[in-house]
């Protein structure tokens, strides 16, 4: 789905919990869109890495949600919004190596506890809010600087 008004473009992708067949598809689409928009390749890479991590976190840790790409000529925003279960301690979750990933995710090579730190490293700024029982919203911002 896509809407665009007054130089804002928004795309919304549904992310299913536990679906490893579709996992990575939303961030893959985001990468394609940004390349077509001619966004600097370094920014495309950072956005894609962050979007992928956020998408995988929703697949592995949440009950499902959506990944939203918003583009303006100045800024790209990737929002991951899920419907639960929420993160009790965001500070702890942000720590490198911290993970509550279940065994099946670890067997697939996930759960190194580097996802959130990676998002932080890639994004120009990051905003995260969570309420246990309600859900998590993560917003990663990327500036499109004129080079």
């Amino acid at each position: 789905m896509m809407t665009s008004r007054n130089h804002i473009m928004e795309q919304v992708y549904t992310v299913e919990a536990g679906n490893f067949v579709l996992a990575g598809e939303a961030s893959g689409q985001i990468k394609k869109v940004l390349k077509q928009l001619g966004v600097d390749s370094n920014i495309v890479r950072r956005v894609t890495v962050a979007a992928y991590e956020a998408e995988m976190n929703m697949v592995i840790h949440s009950v499902g949600g959506e990944l939203i790409l918003k583009v303006t000529p100045e800024r790209i925003t990737v929002t991951a919004r899920d419907r639960g279960p929420g993160i009790p301690d965001i500070g702890l979750a942000m720590q490198e190596g911290y993970s509550t990933a279940p065994e099946i995710a670890r067997e697939l090579g996930f759960g190194a506890g580097m996802g959130l730190p990676n998002i932080k490293r890639c994004a120009d700024s990051l905003n995260m809010q969570s309420k246990v029982g309600e859900g998590t919203i993560l917003e990663a911002y990327f500036d499109i600087k004129a080079r």
Partner: peptide, 20 residues
């Protein structure tokens, strides 16, 4: 970068919308 729709991102966004 032949895949990009336009050098100007605002125009590229407009084109993307038209494509959609």
């Amino acid at each position: 970068p032949v895949m990009k729709l336009d050098d100007d991102i605002t125009l590229a966004m407009k084109k993307m919308e038209a494509i959609e």
